[in-house]
Amino acid sequence: MDDLRELYQETILDHNRKPRNFGPLENANREADGHNPLCGDQLTVYARVNDEGIVEDLHFEGSGCAISKASASLMTEFEKGKSLEAVRADFERFHDLVTSPPDSPAETEGLGKLAVFSGVREYPMRVKCATLAWHALRAALEDDGKTVKTE
């Protein structure tokens, strides 16, 4: 079960039980669906972006496993108030973290609480769960909304 605590850290379990920023966002001007055809997980990310290109508010809703739900929840907290450019950089950093080889040091700099997802590296089948919300967020911000798949 020690392995397991690496993956399911308390923060992840907490955000799974009580997801933050959960539910539709009023006055959202961007949204996109994320869908993982492998497991049927699906979520929607809503964002309100102002004229200065700042993500003023960020919500999500949907159903998924603890990893995808906690990842979405922590992401909405982490990216709220950031510029589109900063979100883009975080996307890359987060993606690099969860897809890096498990035996290499985890590069968590600048990722704050999101560092709890470094355990996902041990479970390649779960990387898509951790990145589902991020792909949806990127689609919402870049392409102005469409369904993205993590396949």
């Binding site: 079960m1 392995d3 397991l4 993956l7 399911y8 039980r17 492998l38 497991c39 049927g40 997980d41 159903s63 998924g64 496993c65 603890a66 990893i67 739900k69 479970y123 089948m125 779960r126 769960c129």
Partner: peptide
């Protein structure tokens, strides 16, 4: 309160192989 994929991963750490999904 537990998604099937999380069940699958937890059981995996106990050496138990099950299927989770659709």
């Amino acid at each position: 309160g537990v998604h099937p994929h999380d069940i699958g991963t937890l059981l995996d750490t106990e050496g138990i192989a099950i299927r989770a999904g659709h």
